[in-house]
């Protein structure tokens, strides 16, 4: 594996900088003053139980939820004046009902919209990018299939292709492994790892680290809208065995010695 660029090197603008971010949902505080910096080419996992605020953090970092307090800076630009959206690839939580009647290629093409001008048709470059992205996730032969014909794991790969088709510098994945069987999780880990090696920064919200473990440079554990632990997966795993102060965060972390994926509900062949 080639060495990754130093994410904290001098003069390097962080990909994402969140400072003292507080978010209310339905009047209730979900994030309480979170700060997080993600450097170039860095892969950060956000871990925590349901309601810990990890999804809210990535969604408000992308401007999908309004912040009550705090600042978000993407590639050195405050969120409000950030326009280089082609540098961001977002994989939302997979909805249970995919878009009715769209083909795989049509869904993936949406990932090029930040690069396209309105009223202009797709270019040959756009089409080639869609083909490449589908090949990357191993769905090159399914371009013309209706997304509803695909399995859950394949649909997840379509969403990842859509996020990567614009060649972003930051990939944000919200629970990409939920409901995806181990085989597809490995494909996903493989695809993302290859792009991280090429300098892509990744923020991934996870319930279970699973096959993504080797990818993660740093894990951030959230609880009740606050960061309660931060460090390498090994450090966090260690601290959770030695400190009893955060017992409720522990069960969300994957233990390296346990075969990953066993507790995520997937039935293996």
């Amino acid at each position: 594996m080639p060495p990754r660029p130093d994410p904290t090197g001098p003069g390097v603008t962080p990909v994402l900088q969140v400072e003292d971010l507080s978010v209310l949902l339905g009047g209730l505080p979900v994030l309480r003053g979170i700060s997080l910096t993600v450097g170039v080419g860095e892969a950060v996992a956000l871990l925590g139980g349901n309601g810990s605020g990890k999804s809210t953090l990535v969604r408000s970092a992308l401007g999908l939820l309004p912040a009550e307090r705090g600042t978000v800076t993407l590639f050195g630009q405050p969120l409000a004046s950030f326009h280089s959206w082609s540098r961001v690839g977002y994989v939302p939580q997979r909805s249970t009902a995919p878009a009715s009647g769209a083909t795989v290629a049509e869904v993936v093409s949406s990932g090029r919209l930040a690069l396209r001008r309105i009223f202009f048709p797709r270019t040959a470059k756009d089409r080639a990018a869609v083909r490449d992205a589908l090949d990357l996730v191993g769905l090159g032969s399914r371009a013309k299939s209706d997304v509803r014909e695909l399995s859950g794991g394949q649909q997840q790969r379509v969403l990842i292709a859509r996020a990567l088709v614009g060649d972003p510098d930051l990939l944000v994945l919200d629970e990409p492994t939920a409901g995806v069987d181990l085989e597809h999780q490995r494909v996903l880990a493989d695809v993302v790892t290859r792009r991280v090696d090429a300098g892509l920064a990744v923020i991934v919200v996870l319930h279970e680290v699973g096959p993504l473990t080797p990818l993660i440079d740093r894990a951030v554990v959230l609880r009740d809208g606050r960061v309660v632990a931060q460090g390498s997966l090994a450090e966090i795993d260690h601290s959770r065995h030695t400190h009893v102060s955060h017992p409720s965060t522990g069960h969300e972390l994957s233990e390296p010695e346990r075969p990953p994926g066993l507790l995520d509900g997937a039935v293996e062949p």
Binding site: S86, P92, A99, V107, S110, L113, R116
Partner: peptide, 22 residues
């Protein structure tokens, strides 16, 4: 017809469309 790609993205996955700067 002219804004079909944008309208498609917005009407099928609004949040994703926003992260495309739409």
């Amino acid at each position: 017809l002219g804004l079909a790609p944008q309208l498609f993205a917005v009407s099928t996955d609004e949040e994703f469309a926003r992260t495309q700067g739409l």
